[in-house]
């Protein structure tokens, strides 16, 4: 991956959402492999998260050519996990995360989506159709990520959630 890679040769198709012209978002789209390093740079402030083209689809909101919000959908052997939803501090309170989540959910809606939501954001993800589920309902590969919490997810301040497939 190369951070200096040029923009993709084929821009994504217009994403027109009625009533969304109030902010300065110039586009929301899925990143190509050559752009993963741009996401990695943004995620430096988010637990050093990095994207892996082998398993991940990354969705980004751009403003004036700069990534202002990100979300990741990772393919595990037994399910899809949503994480990496992150907006840098100086771009917050503008609805970018909501737009990126809208995009991710729409793009990946054909499968059930799972996530570990930080507890104070369960309401936010609930607006996209995510519902709280017991940890045991998570696919094993996804559950494995939080094995260190050994059943005490409340202590880890996260809540497993699931969104059933469908638009």
């Amino acid at each position: 991956m190369n951070g200096n890679n040029p923009a993709p040769k084929t821009p994504p198709l217009i994403v027109t959402t009625p009533g969304s012209s109030g902010d300065a978002v110039s586009g929301i789209r899925e990143l190509r492999v050559s752009e993963f390093s741009l996401a990695d740079n943004v995620w430096l402030d988010y637990h050093n998260t990095t994207g892996d083209p082998k398993t991940d689809r990354i969705f980004a909101a751009f403003s004036s050519g700069v990534i202002v919000s990100l979300a990741r959908c990772r393919r595990h052997r037994d399910g899809l996990e949503v994480d990496g939803v992150f907006t840098p501090e100086n771009f917050r309170k503008k609805g970018y995360s909501r737009r990126v989540m809208d995009a991710l959910v729409e793009a990946c809606h054909n499968d059930d989506l799972y996530m570990y939501a930080v507890r104070h954001l369960t309401g936010f993800y609930g607006q996209f159709g995510f519902k709280p589920i017991p940890e045991s309902a998570l696919p094993p590969d996804i559950r494995e990520r939080y094995t260190w919490a050994t059943g005490n997810l409340e202590g880890a301040d996260v809540q497993p959630m699931c969104r059933k497939a469908g638009l």
Binding site: P8, L13, V15, T16, E30
Partner: peptide, 10 residues
């Protein structure tokens, strides 16, 4: 006025 989204990048 039809909204059109295509998510087939890559």
């Amino acid at each position: 006025r039809v909204v059109f989204h295509a998510w087939t990048e890559r």
